[in-house]
Design a protein around this nucleic acid. Structure first.
Lengths: 257, 257
DNA sequence: CGTAGCTTTGAGTGTTATCAACTCTCGTGG
DNA sequence: CCACGAGAGTTGATAACACTCAAAGCTACG
C-alpha cells in the first residue's frame, strides 16, 4: 500500500492513546461528550498512524474504511483534473477530521498527502456509526463536523469566485493565523508546511502569483517572509484586504470595489 | 418571518403528504429506508411550504429550525460578501436537501431564495435527529447527504479554481442535464430558472461572459439558446469542453462527475 | 558540495472584467 | 391599444489582472 508498514511500528505501546488526555479534544470529535462517552470513543480508535512527508493517507478511489483525525503535522487533500491540473480542497491541521467526503459513495474522492511528518488517529467507520447511534451527542457532533466542512468549502468557494488574488492570499493567511492560535500556537508567527505551488493550487492562483504577493505584502509591511516562515505584522491590515475587515484601519491601497 | 403565511394556506388538506407516494423518494432522504421507517419520516414532516419567485426560505443568520427538501421548483443559496458581491453556492432542484450547512452553528450561513414557484417539505431538525437515532439507516442516509454536499462543493471548487470560463459553463450545463434526467425530465432540452447574473454569480463569471459563451456555444452548434430555454445538441462536445478544451480534445480520461 | 527542487523576479500575453449602448420582453397603466 | 419603463439579455470596445514562459537565486538534503 501507499503508506509504509514501518511507520506504524514505532511506539506500538502508545497505540492506546487517550482522547481524554489529548490536547485536541476540544477541537476534535469529543467536543461535548461526557467522560464515559469519550472512553467509548477511545476504545474504538484502532490505532495511530505516522506518515512521513509525501506519504499518502489515502488515494482517490480507495474504499472508505475509517475517518482520520490529525493529531500532529498537516495533510493536504487534492483532486486531480483530467488534464493533470490539481485543485487542493483543504489543508488539515491537528484536531481536524479527514475522509468525511467519502461517506456519500464509500470511496475517497480525493488524495490525502502528508505535508510533513504527521500523526493521525484512525476511526473505523463502522464502529463510529454504531457508537453514534448509542451516543446522541456524538451523532450530533458528527453531523456538526460534516456541516462545518460544508461551510468551509463554501467560504473557499466565495474566495475563488469573488475575490482577487490579493484578497485570497490575505484570507488564507488570516485563516492559518486563527487556526494556529486555536491550537495554542502563535497566531502571528508560524511556518507553512506547504509549498507556493500548493498554496496556488488551493487558492486557484499560479505559484508565481503567490510568490509575488508574498513579496508585495512584505514591501507593504503587512508580513515578514523568510521562505516558509511567516510573520504577520499587521493582522488588521490583512483582514481589511479580505474585505471582511471589522477592525479596519485605512489600509486601502487600490479601490477593489 | 420572511415567507408569507398566505402561501401555506393553500391546500392544507394536502399537508399530510406521503413520502411513500412521492416520485422523489429515491432521490431524497428516504433512500434505503423500509416502508415502516418511511412512515415514521412522514409523521415527522411538519408541512409543506409554497414559495413564490423571489421569496426567501431562510436568510443569513436565521436560526436553524428545519431542513428543507425541494419538492418542486428550484432554489438558489447565496452568500453575501462585504462589498455586495454575492457568491451563489448552489442551485437546488427537486429531491435535494437544503439547510445542512447550518447544522454546525445552528445558524443559516446563507440566503435561500426561490427562483420560481417552489414547494418544499419541512423537516424539523430536532425530530430528525431523534428519528435518526432510532433508525440507523436514516442516520447513515443523513450522513451520506451531508457528505454528498461536500463532494459537490469540492467539484465546484475545482471548477472555480482550475477551469476557464468555457469549461465552467459547459460543466454547469452538463450537470443540469444529468440532474434533469434523474428527475425524469429531458436531459437535452430544459428551461433554466435562473438569470445570466445568477449563473455568473455561481460560476464566478461576469454575466456578460455567460451571455457571450451561450452565443458562442450556439455558433459552434453545441447548444440552441432561446433566452432561458436551452437545448443541448452535442452533449459529448460539451463534456469534452469541461476537460479544458481550448487545445486538442483527445481526452482519454473519464469525466469526473 | 553538488544537485534537484523550490522560490523569486522579469517580460510579454491573453482571458475575462468593466463600461457602455442597444434590443427585447413583459407587465402596467394611461 | 399603445406607450412606457424596468429588468433581462446581447454585443462591442477597452483595459486590467493574473497566467505563461524564462532565467537566475536560494534551500535543503543526500
Amino acid at each position: 500500500m501507499s503508506t509504509k508498514e514501518g511507520a506504524t511500528v514505532v511506539n506500538l505501546n502508545r497505540m492506546k492513546h487517550a482522547c481524554r488526555e489529548c490536547s485536541l479534544r476540544e477541537l476534535c470529535l469529543p467536543v461535548g461528550l461526557s467522560d464515559t462517552d469519550i472512553r467509548s470513543l477511545e476504545n474504538m480508535i484502532k490505532r495511530r498512524k505516522t506518515l512521513k512527508k509525501g506519504d499518502f493517507l489515502y488515494r482517490v478511489g480507495d474504499p472508505l474504511s475509517a475517518l482520520y483525525a490529525v493529531s500532529s503535522g498537516s495533510i493536504k487533500t487534492s483532486e486531480l483534473a483530467h488534464d493533470g491540473d490539481i485543485q487542493i480542497t483543504g489543508f488539515h491541521l491537528p484536531g481536524e477530521l479527514l475522509g468525511i467526503d467519502a461517506i456519500s459513495t464509500d470511496l475517497h474522492p480525493c488524495d490525502a498527502v502528508a505535508l510533513e511528518t504527521t500523526v493521525v488517529c484512525e476511526l473505523p467507520m463502522g464502529k463510529l456509526e454504531d457508537l453514534a447511534r448509542d451516543i446522541p451527542s456524538l451523532q450530533r457532533q458528527l453531523l456538526r463536523v460534516l456541516s462545518r466542512e460544508i461551510v468551509q468549502d463554501e467560504n473557499l468557494l466565495m474566495m475563488l469566485g469573488k475575490m482577487n488574488a490579493e484578497a485570497r492570499l490575505a484570507a488564507c493567511l488570516v485563516s492559518f493565523s486563527e487556526r494556529f492560535e486555536r491550537l495554542g500556537h502563535s497566531g502571528t508567527k508560524f511556518k507553512l508546511s506547504m509549498s507556493r505551488q500548493d498554496l496556488g493550487d488551493y487558492l486557484g492562483l499560479a505559484l508565481e502569483t503567490v510568490s509575488r504577493l508574498f513579496s508585495r505584502f512584505q514591501e507593504e509591511g503587512l508580513i515578514r517572509v523568510e521562505g516558509r516562515h511567516i510573520q504577520l505584522l499587521n493582522l488588521a491590515g490583512l483582514r481589511a484586504l479580505t474585505g471582511k475587515g471589522a477592525a479596519g484601519q485605512g489600509s486601502r491601497h487600490q479601490p477593489v470595489a
